[in-house]
């Protein structure tokens, strides 16, 4: 019989920040909290003011130049430079492909409360794009 648990706050019993889940194949157990995506973002930047379409754990987005942005978090990460920024993608409104990097003009700002990112086209120029998305994993404070 299917079961439903109605709850607003999940906490570990032994340690509040550590709930164990069993793997899909049943061979291993891992921490739920450590594996949850802590931040994701989809925004449009090829307009006058970049606009967030949807997000998780993002308080605001700053436009710091063509193809350059700072993402500010609602809840801080545990340590600067020690979380992972995978899954950054971009879709442009032109024929050139593009990619998103964590750095911005050589200045890494990989802080607990936000990070700077840059979008570069395949012709090696910074560019604003129609759809920019990112995904962060790691430990929150």
């Amino acid at each position: 019989m299917a079961s439903i648990l109605k709850v607003d706050d999940l906490r570990g019993n032994t340690s509040a920040g550590d709930i164990t889940i069993t793997s899909e194949g049943g061979a291993a157990t891992q921490s739920l909290q450590h594996g949850l995506n802590k931040c994701w973002l989809n925004f449009e930047s090829d307009i006058t003011t970049p606009a967030i379409r949807d997000s998780l754990n993002v308080s605001s987005l700053d436009d710091i130049g063509t193809g350059r942005y700072r993402v500010n978090y609602s809840n801080n990460f545990n340590a600067a430079k020690e979380y992972a920024g995978g899954g950054m993608t971009v879709r442009g409104g032109n024929s050139k492909g593009a990619f998103v990097a964590l750095d911005s003009q050589g200045n890494i700002n990989f802080a607990t409360n936000g990070t700077s990112i840059s979008v570069t086209r395949s012709d090696n120029t910074l560019a604003d794009q129609d759809i920019v998305s990112m995904l962060l994993t790691g430990d929150l404070a």
Binding site: E24, G25, G86, A101, D103, S104, G106, I108, T120, L135
Partner: peptide, 21 residues
């Protein structure tokens, strides 16, 4: 469980003059 999983990656370097890597 198999090798059909998804990997998302990203990289950057603050000390290099070519940030777009």
């Amino acid at each position: 469980n198999n090798d059909d999983y998804s990997v998302s990656v990203n990289a950057g370097d603050s000390a290099k003059s070519y940030p777009r890597l």
